[in-house]
Design a protein around this nucleic acid. Structure first.
Length: 870
RNA sequence: GGGCAAUUAACUCAGCGGGAGAGUGCUACCUUCACAUGGUAGAAGUCACAGGUUCGAACCCUGUAUUGCCCACCA
C-alpha cells in the first residue's frame, strides 16, 4: 500500500469493476425484499453541480446500505428534458451562431435539441459515475423517451376524459422573454422599490375627478373601469358615473366592488382585466371587456396608440411624463411591492389572459392531502409536511401548456374543416367527426407534467409490468426543500390518481449547499464550487463525506475547503490504519475471530465496535446518513486509531508468532467491519482497502453483508476504560511537569484493593502508552510525583522528572477539584427533593461518587502531607 | 400580513429533562518503527434574553430580540 491516501490510483478502476460485475443491477426477486429509490432526474441542460453531489450522495449511501442489508436495492437513474430550461439554453447557444429558433423551424430546432440531449445528457451521467453512484444504469430513463412519452399521453388523455384536464381562456403568468405561459410555482417574487402613482381620472360631464393609485400606469390604456368599495362614503355619489380615461378620453364606468379596500391608496382602483389577476376576476363579476394593450414580447400593442411598439417599461416612463404634462399626475409615492420574475430568465412576469391547458387540482389534491395527514407518506423532517399541506390546501389549477417546441407535444388535434378537437393517446390523422384534415396543438407540456409520473413511468406504466408490481411504491424520495411543490407534491397526487397508490413511503428532505459564509452558491457571486474539480484535487470520498457528515436531516450545509481537507485527512488516517494492519500481516497467520485468544484491549475494542454498529444501524435506518458518518469518524479516529492500534502494539511486537497472529486477527476483523460501516458513505477507499484484507466473505465490499453485531465483553470494556483513565492521567501529569514527550520514566503501580489483577494485566499498556521504560510495583522511597485514581496509584520518582517543584502545586489543584466534585454529589444527596423524587439508579450513582471522591480526597491529602515533610 | 426554522467554545455544528460535546482554529511539547494529511496535553461557553413548570432545564411552556427561509391578489 502507498504511504498516503491517493484516490486517483484506484477510484476509476474500482468503479469500472463494479459496473462490469453488474453489482448495481436490480431485478424482481421473490427471495428478497425490494428497496427502491428513483433519482431526481438531473436536467440535461447542465453538468454535475454541488447540489446533485449532495442529493445523490445521500441516496447512494442509503441504497448501498440497503443493498448490504440484503434488500434487492434498485436505484433508478435518468435525466429530465427540462422543457423550458433546456430550450432557453439552446436558444442562447444558437444566438452565439447568429441563429434564431424561427429560422430553423420546429423540425430543425428539435433536431438540434436532440443533439444537445445526446451530448449533455450523456455527460452528466459520466459525471455521476465519478461520484461513485450505484445506479442501475441499464435502466437509464429519460423523461422524453418512448416509455415516458407513452405514460404522458396515457395520463393526459385519462385526465382529459375525466374532465381533470381542460382548455380555457384564463389569466396566466406570461414571460415576455421566454414567450410562454408559466405555472404559479415558476414565478419567483422579489421585493422591489417602486412607486405608487396617483392619477386623476376626470368625471365625464362634470368638473371633478377621481384619483386612482397604481403601480402599473402602463396598463392604463387597458382599463375597463374604476372600482371603489361599496361602503366608501367618499365615492358613493359617483358609482355608476362615467370617467374619462386619461391620455385617450375613452369612457369607463365607476363600479363598486368589495375587493377594493378603502384605506389603501386613494380607495379607488383602476380595473384592468387583461393585465391583473384580481382585475380579471372583478371584470368577470361586472362583465367588463378585457382589453389587452400588450404584445407577447412585452411591448405595447397597436391599441396603445402613441405608445405602440414601446417596451412596457419605456411606455411607463413616457406615460408618467405625459400625465404630468397634462396635469393629471396628482402625486408620486415611494412604494415597496413584490414583483414576479421568471424562474428561468428572471424577466418580470406579465399577467396575461390567454388560451391555455390546465389541470383541475381540487379533486387531485384531496387524496394527496389525506396521505400526508395520515402519514401514509411521511415527511422527514416532519415540519416540511406543513409546508406541503399548506400549499395543497390552497392549490389552484395548474397551467400545463407551454409555448415551446422542446417537450411533450400536447396530444390534442384540431380539425381544419369542422374545427372540433380530438384528444387521443395515438396520433390522429383525420378528424373522427368529419374526416377532415387535422393539425396538432402547437404547445408542449410543462416539464413537471412528465416528472410527476417519474416513479411509475420509469417502471413500465401504463403496462402492468413485473417491475411495477415489485418495486412500486418506491421507498424513499430524497430531495432538497426547494422542489417540494414542483415535484414532490405532483408525484404524490399523480401516483394516487394513476396508480391508485402513493409513489413513495417517505420523503427525505435536505437543505441547500452554501458557501463558507452561508451564502447560496450562485454564478453571479462566483462562489460556486465544482464537484469535478474537487474530485480531481481531493478525491470523491472526501467530497462525499464533507457534504454529508454531521448534517442532520433538513438542514442546509456549509461547504468549505477546510472541511474538505479535514475529511481528506480522515481518509488518510483510515488509509494508514489499514496500512498498519496490512504491513503486520507478514509473519502472522490470520485466524477467524472464534479462534482468537482475546486480551483485555481486544475485548474492549470488540465491544466498542458493537456499540458503533448498533449506532450506525440506528442512524441509517432513520436515513440519518450525516449523523452516522460523524459518529463513525469519531469511532475510527479515537477508538480504533488512537487507542486500539496503540494498545495492540504491545502484543503485536512480540516475538511469538502466535501472539502476533491473534492480535492481527482482531485488527483485521475490526478493520473489515469498520470498512463495511463506512462503505455506504465512502465507497471507493473502503473497497480499495477491503481488497487488501484476508478472509473476506465476498469479492467486493459492496455486496458483502452490513455488520449487525460484534461480541460484547462489558466487564473488559469497563476495565479498559479504567486503564485508559490511568494512562490519560499519567500523560497529563507529565505535561504539567513539563516532561518532554520523548522522555520515558519508571512507573510504580500500587493498585487499590481488588485491582491487583487489573494492574498486572494493564501493566504493558500503561508502560507503552504512558511513556514508561519500566513498570514496578509498590511505592518507591524518595520524592515522587503521584497519580491518584480509584483503581491504582502511580508514582514517578522525582529524579526522573524535569520540574519537581510543580508537584505540590499540581496535587493541591487536584485536591480542589476532587473536593468540588464531592461537594456537588453530597449537595445533591442532601436535597430532600432529589432523594425523594429522583430515580433510584441516579441516587445510587451519586452515592458511589461520594464514596469514590472521599477515598481520593484522603489519598490526596495524605500525599500532600507526605510531600511537605520530605 | 401569516407560517417555519435557527440562536451552544473564535468558526462550523451535534446534543433536546439528570454533571456542557465534536471538528477546525489556537497554545505547549514531540519527526516514537501506520499516519506531521500525525501524536500527547491544554486554554477556551452565565447553551440569545426574560419569566414559568420541575427535586433538577441548553433541553419542556410563555413571551421578547436578532437572523434566515417559505407562503400571501392590498392596487
Amino acid at each position: 500500500m502507498n504511504k498516503t491516501y491517493e484516490p486517483k490510483t484506484f477510484e476509476e478502476k474500482i468503479y469500472r469493476n463494479w459496473e462490469e460485475k453488474k453489482y448495481f443491477s436490480a431485478k424482481p426477486n421473490k427471495n428478497k425484499k425490494p428497496f427502491t429509490i428513483v433519482i431526481p432526474p438531473p436536467n440535461i441542460t447542465g453538468q454535475l453541480h454541488i447540489g446533485h453531489a449532495l442529493d445523490d450522495t445521500i441516496q447512494d449511501a442509503i441504497i448501498r446500505y440497503k443493498r448490504m442489508r440484503g434488500y434487492e436495492a434498485l436505484w433508478l437513474p435518468g435525466t429530465d428534458h427540462a422543457a423550458l430550461a433546456t430550450e432557453v439554453k439552446i436558444v442562447e447557444a444558437m444566438a452565439q451562431e447568429g441563429l434564431r429558433k424561427e429560422t430553423l423551424g420546429r423540425e430543425g430546432f428539435l433536431e438540434r435539441a436532440y443533439a444537445w440531449k445526446d451530448k449533455y445528457g450523456g455527460r452528466i451521467i459520466e459525471q455521476f459515475k465519478k461520484m461513485g453512484f450505484s445506479c442501475d444504469w441499464d435502466r437509464l430513463a429519460f423523461t422524453m423517451d418512448e416509455r415516458c412519452s407513452r405514460a404522458v399521453r396515457e395520463v393526459f388523455v385519462n385526465l382529459y376524459d375525466k374532465g381533470l384536464v381542460y382548455r380555457g381562456n384564463r389569466m396566466i403568468n406570461w414571460c415576455p422573454c421566454c414567450k410562454t405561459a408559466l405555472s404559479d410555482v415558476e414565478v419567483e417574487y422579489a421585493a422591489a422599490h417602486s412607486h405608487l402613482w396617483h392619477i386623476k381620472y376626470r368625471i365625464d360631464g362634470e368638473d371633478g375627478y377621481v384619483t386612482v393609485a397604481t403601480t402599473r400606469p402602463e396598463t392604463l390604456l387597458g382599463d375597463a373601469a374604476v372600482a371603489v368599495n361599496p361602503n366608501d362614503k367618499r365615492y358613493k355619489h359617483i358609482v355608476g358615473k362615467q370617467l374619462l380615461l386619461p391620455l385617450t378620453n375613452r369612457k369607463i364606468p365607476v363600479i363598486a366592488d368589495s375587493y377594493v379596500e378603502s384605506d389603501f391608496g386613494t380607495g379607488a382602483v383602476k380595473i384592468t382585466p387583461a393585465h391583473d389577476p384580481n382585475d380579471f376576476e372583478v371584470g368577470k363579476r361586472h362583465n367588463l371587456p378585457v382589453i389587452c394593450v400588450m404584445r407577447e414580447d412585452g411591448t405595447m400593442a397597436e391599441n396603445a396608440g402613441a405608445y405602440a411598439g414601446l417596451d412596457r417599461f419605456a411606455a411607463r416612463e413616457r406615460m408618467i411624463a405625459d400625465l404630468q404634462a397634462q396635469g393629471l399626475l396628482a402625486k408620486t409615492e415611494e412604494h415597496e411591492n413584490n414583483v414576479g420574475h421568471c424562474q428561468r430568465c428572471h424577466t418580470v412576469i406579465e399577467p396575461m389572459v390567454s388560451d391555455q391547458w390546465f389541470v383541475k387540482m381540487q379533486p387531485l389534491a384531496e387524496p394527496a392531502i389525506r396521505v400526508a395527514k395520515d402519514k401514509t407518506v411521511e415527511f422527514i423532517p416532519e415540519r416540511f409536511k406543513k409546508i406541503y399541506l399548506h400549499w395543497m390546501e390552497n392549490i389552484r389549477d395548474w397551467c400545463i401548456s407551454r409555448q415551446l417546441w422542446w417537450g411533450h407535444r400536447i396530444p390534442a388535434f384540431y380539425c381544419d374543416k369542422c374545427g372540433k378537437m380530438t384528444v387521443s393517446k395515438t396520433d390522429v390523422t383525420a378528424c373522427p367527426h368529419c374526416g377532415g384534415s387535422v393539425h396538432q396543438d402547437e404547445d408542449v407540456l410543462d416539464t413537471w407534467f412528465s416528472s410527476a409520473l417519474w416513479p411509475f413511468a420509469t417502471l413500465g406504466y401504463p403496462d402492468k409490468t413485473e417491475d411495477l408490481a415489485y418495486f412500486y411504491p418506491t421507498d424513499v424520495l430524497v430531495t432538497a426543500y426547494d422542489i417540494i411543490f414542483f415535484w414532490v407534491a405532483r408525484m404524490i397526487f399523480s401516483g394516487l390518481e394513476h396508480m391508485r397508490e402513493i409513489p413513495f413511503h417517505k420523503v427525505l428532505i435536505h437543505g441547500l449547499v452554501r458557501d463558507a459564509q452561508g451564502r447560496k452558491m450562485s454564478k453571479s457571486l462566483g462562489n460556486g464550487v465544482d464537484p469535478l474539480e474537487i474530485i480531481e484535487s481531493h478525491g470523491t470520498d472526501p467530497l462525499r463525506m464533507s457534504l454529508v457528515s454531521g448534517v442532520a436531516a433538513g438542514g442546509d450545509i456549509r461547504f468549505s475547503t477546510e472541511k474538505l481537507e479535514g475529511y481528506r485527512n480522515f481518509m488518510n488516517k483510515l488509509w494508514n490504519a489499514a496500512r498498519f494492519v496490512v504491513l503486520n500481516l507478514e509473519n502472522a497467520d490470520v485466524l477467524p475471530l472464534e479462534k482468537v485468544k482475546l486480551t483485555l484491549a481486544d475485548k474492549w475494542m470488540l465491544t466498542r465496535l458493537d456499540d458503533a454498529i448498533k449506532q450506525s444501524v440506528k442512524y441509517m435506518d432513520k436515513f440519518e446518513v450525516g449523523l452516522c458518518a460523524a459518529a463513525l469518524y469519531d469511532f475510527v479516529w479515537s477508538d480504533f486509531c488512537d487507542w486500539y492500534i496503540e494498545l495492540s502494539k504491545t502484543r503485536l511486537y512480540s516475538t511469538d508468532r502466535a501472539e502476533r497472529s491473534h492480535t492481527v486477527s482482531v485488527l483485521v476483523y475490526v478493520l473489515r467491519n469498520i470498512l463495511k460501516l463506512l462503505h455506504p458513505v465512502i465507497p471507493f477507499v473502503t473497497e480499495e482497502i477491503y481488497g487488501n484484507l484476508p478472509l473476506n466473505d465476498a469479492e467486493s465490499i459492496m455486496i458483502d453483508a452490513y455488520p449487525l453485531k460484534a461480541p460484547r465483553y462489558p466487564a473488559a470494556k469497563k476495565q479498559t476504560e479504567n486503564l485508559k483513565d490511568v494512562i490519560t492521567r499519567i500523560r497529563a501529569l507529565r505535561a504539567d511537569m513539563k516532561v518532554p514527550a520523548n522522555k520515558r520514566t519508571a512507573l510504580y503501580l500500587v493498585p487499590t484493593e481488588g485491582n491487583e489483577k487489573l494492574a498486572k494485566d494493564g501493566a504493558g499498556y500503561i508502560e507503552k502508552l504512558a511513556y514508561g521504560n519500566s513498570i514496578r510495583y509498590g511505592k518507591p522511597s524518595g520524592k515522587c510525583a503521584t497519580v491518584t485514581t480509584p483503581w491504582m496509584e502511580v508514582y514517578i520518582p522525582m529524579e526522573e522528572l524535569v520540574d519537581p517543584s510543580a508537584e505540590l502545586d499540581r496535587l493541591s489543584k487536584e485536591l480542589v477539584t476532587v473536593q468540588a466534585e464531592l461537594a456537588r454529589a453530597e449537595g445533591k444527596l442532601g436535597n430532600p427533593g432529589f432523594t425523594a423524587k429522583a430515580p433510584p439508579k441516579l441516587i445510587e450513582e451519586e452515592k458511589a461518587k461520594v464514596e469514590k471522591y472521599t477515598a481520593l480526597k484522603e489519598k490526596l491529602t495524605a500525599a500532600i502531607e507526605e510531600w511537605k515533610q520530605l
